[in-house]
Design a protein around this nucleic acid. Structure first.
Length: 756
DNA sequence: ACGCGGACTTAGCAACATACCG
DNA sequence: CGGTATGTTGCTAAGTCCGCGT
């Protein structure tokens, strides 16, 4: 019934769909889909275990009586770019055999135990969330930065450090901290840290009232090579003009990287290099193959070797110089407070290397001149001077944005910015708000889920697609998937931009029904591979969406991120696709922590539990990393240690035994004591062994999973802080110094009973 | 609606710094 | 004390999403 029905229905509209889903703009000439880079992806490949379904109570009662059709007039606009054969070897990717065992950890993020709280209105009502705190009074009279509170941070810090270095009386003060971060120079923060989270916030898009900074630091000028370092063309030495030589050095420095052997890289490089050449050079240097950079390359290797061999003093000097630069340019004043800048250096010139199969790899990233720089600061601030003999492109005073400096980048034509550090108020507030939005989603996620399940039955194709896509985003934490211009970057996709070739449907597989196999490259060309059983209705819809389409056609041809987000916005104020990732990540952490933490276990075991919870999130979000180069070896080392520890234990046991025997015979105080101490020794060793084993497990499980990204971007830090408080785990075990700075707000405000 | 520029978040990797081991 | 394993920071590419102009 429903199947046939659907089928028929779909034919009604398949006409129109097929029509345009097959007309392709021909802008996509061809792209050679080589995907050589797949090696890496393969290595990382893993199969995620299937996730459990949302509760699917209402399943049976919905028959597919509805008609599916496109609303006529509905934009027949297809995202019909992908014509060419993007078929590539992906298919041969053996389905996830490498898999990382994670059992339920990677389960679907929605915990069953969250009951629907009764505030649908909460979510519906637009614009009511307003602020976490009172609004900031905007006519705040004395908001001008007359006095800068933390102005002496620098000095204070310095002094502190000195102190520290001199007399390590740190222990008293920072006993908990000492363990986790450096024992010696525990850098002290300035006494009273500014708690911006206790202040009112701006409304109406104003980001600051006062902003002063020193401008960017430019890349050092090019220093020509010593004349003894030769470049050869066709076997003959050739002196290059400085600009030409500079670009040549970029290539030389990459010589032993694999990508200098790639055609696209070489082609792009050579084309851009030639643009830098004098006409004479241009006429001579016509073939990259005849260019010999090896002497240059050797020279740079020697240089970096020499750098490593520098004496302590030399190194210290460099360090001091860097520190000076940081102190001068690394901070700004924003609204009365000195704040750290994230990236105060302009990106130096070099050869572009995108990630994955990037069509622009090898292109020359130009050196940026002051004349290309836009400075943003407040009118009444001291405007940073341009370098001598130069001027800025523009100085503007836009307090509706957060950046201090911007420039255009020549590879993608995008804008680059200098902005503040994550510890800054402006970033922190935003981050906090992000988690508040996710918590708001928590309150209405059940309603939303019911909604999209209903929409699977809609008669409008567009709505069905939207609903299925949303299901994926929710269940699998996929990214939204904006359209990308073809040929501008690597061919990667997200949910809305999935193509037919990226999924395979299996009505039945390994005893499970309705399995969808995903295999595509996502952000940063990281492979997403997963086999998921889905609800029947989803499965049927997918079949419908795929009817009469080519592999390179869009799966959701009536959907894009803008349509989806518009819909989400209507369901909940502030809701967009990425909120689901945040929500599902955070709720998974919370729930996993609850599940995995064993109150009786010791500290290392608790931390392992935390890492496992964290890992469950990383798996959900597909945060992968290349296995560390030294992984096997370090694993082996650890095993050796474990083995020797075991030996020690048995030796120690034997001693204990004989001591006991001895004690039985001699029955004096001394031997008794001896037994006791042997007993202790065994215990201690066993504890050490445990710790090592835990470490080994942790590391093994972490082989190709990156925890950092989720920790930094997806997990409400208050969950972690609360967990630490609850179980008496020092926060330093979970967050390093940078992370503690970024999450200072959460550390300060979350209590042990915090609920996401 | 749509396409695009702009602003801002999220991402993995490499270089660097520090802890650790023999 | 030097060399290596491990943790941290810097770097910048690659996403998301919004708002504007058409």
């Amino acid at each position: 019934m429903s199947g046939d029905q659907l089928h028929n229905d779909s034919q009604i509209d398949s006409g129109s769909r097929t029509n345009d889903s097959h007309k392709h703009k021909d802008k996509h000439k061809d792209r050679e889909h080589k995907h050589k880079d797949h090696k890496k992806d393969k290595e990382r490949e893993k199969s995620k275990h299937s996730n459990s379904e949302h509760k699917d109570s209402s399943e049976k009662k919905n028959k597919d009586k509805d008609k599916v059709k496109h609303k006529d007039g509905s934009s027949e606009k297809h995202k019909d770019k992908h014509k060419d054969k993007r078929k590539d070897e992906k298919s041969k990717s053996s389905s996830g055999e490498t898999k990382i065992k994670m059992e339920k950890e990677n389960g679907f993020a929605s915990p069953p135990h969250i009951k629907a709280e009764p505030e649908s209105n909460h979510c519906l009502s637009p614009k009511h969330n307003k602020s976490l705190k009172r609004e900031r009074d905007d006519d705040d009279a004395d908001f001008k930065p007359k006095k800068i509170k933390i102005e002496n941070e620098k000095k204070a810090k310095k002094k502190k450090q000195d102190q520290e270095d001199i007399k390590p009386k740190k222990k008293t003060k920072d006993k908990r901290g000492a363990a986790a971060d450096g024992k010696k120079r525990v850098k002290k923060e300035p006494e009273e840290k500014w708690k911006w989270w206790e202040e009112e916030r701006y409304t109406d898009g104003v980001k600051w009232k006062f902003l002063e900074h020193k401008g960017p630091v430019f890349a050092p000028d090019y220093e020509p090579l010593p004349s003894k370092v030769k470049f050869y063309y066709d076997g003959k030495p050739m002196k290059l003009s400085p600009q030409t030589e500079e670009v040549a050095t970029f290539f030389a420095k990459m010589l032993d990287h694999e990508y200098t052997t790639k055609d696209i890289f070489r082609k792009n490089f050579f084309k851009d290099w030639r643009k830098e050449m004098t006409s004479e050079e241009k006429s001579i240097l016509t073939d990259l193959k005849k260019c010999d950079f090896t002497e240059m390359s050797e020279y740079f290797k020697a240089q970096s070797e020499a750098r490593k061999q520098m004496t302590k003093e030399e190194k210290l000097k460099i360090k001091e110089e860097n520190e000076r630069l940081l102190q001068e340019y690394g901070f700004c004043v924003m609204d009365n407070h000195k704040e750290r800048i994230a990236n105060f250096r302009i990106e130096p010139p070099g050869l572009f290397r995108g990630r994955g199969d990037h069509p622009k790899m090898g292109m020359l990233k130009r050196r940026i001149q002051p004349e290309e720089i836009i400075i943003n600061c407040s009118k009444d601030s001291k405007i940073p001077p341009a370098p001598a003999g130069h001027k800025w492109k523009e100085v503007r005073h836009d307090n509706k944005v957060t950046w201090l400096v911007s420039w255009n980048e020549n590879i993608q034509g995008s804008i680059k910015y200098i902005m503040l550090n994550p510890s800054s108020r402006i970033k922190g507030e935003k981050d906090w708000q992000k988690y508040e939005t996710a918590r708001k989603l928590k309150k209405c996620v059940d309603r939303l889920r019911n909604q999209y399940r209903e929409d699977w039955k809609s008669k409008e194709m567009k709505i069905r697609q939207r609903a299925v896509a949303l299901y994926f985003i929710d269940k699998l934490a996929l990214r939204a998937g904006n359209e990308k211009e073809e040929g501008e970057s690597a061919d990667t996709v997200g949910c809305c931009s999935l193509r037919v070739e990226h999924i395979k449907l299996y009505p039945e597989m390994d005893g499970q029904e309705f399995v969808v196999e995903f295999d595509f490259l996502g952000k940063d060309s990281i492979r997403y591979y997963n086999k998921v059983p889905v609800e029947k209705r989803v499965f049927k819809n997918l079949q419908l969406f795929m009817e009469n389409k080519q592999p390179e056609d869009d799966l959701f041809d009536r959907l894009n991120t803008s349509i989806l987000n518009k819909h989400l916005q209507e369901l909940m104020d502030g809701l967009t696709a990425k909120v689901f990732r945040t929500y599902n990540a955070s709720i998974t952490l919370q729930q996993q922590l609850k599940e995995l933490t064993n109150p009786d276990e010791n500290l290392p075991a608790k931390i392992l539990s935390y890492n496992r919870a964290n890992r469950a999130v990383a798996v959900l979000c597909n945060h992968q990393r290349a296995p560390p180069k030294t992984f096997e070896k370090s694993m082996q080392n650890l095993q050796t240690k474990i083995d020797s520890k075991k030996d020690q234990i048995s030796a120690s046991r034997r001693e204990l035994k004989s001591a006991k025997a001895d004690a039985k015979v001699r029955r004096d105080e001394k031997t008794k004591k001896c037994v006791e101490s042997k007993k202790k020794a065994v215990q201690r060793l066993e504890e050490q062994l445990m710790k090592l084993e835990v470490q080994a497990t942790d590391r093994e499980e972490n082989k190709q999973i990156a925890l950092g990204t989720s920790k930094l971007n997806y997990l409400d830090p208050r969950i972690s802080v609360a967990w630490c408080k609850k179980w008496d785990v020092p926060i330093e075990k979970i967050y390093n110094k940078t992370q503690r700075e970024k999450f200072a707000w959460a550390i300060d405000m979350a209590e042990e009973d915090y609920e996401f």
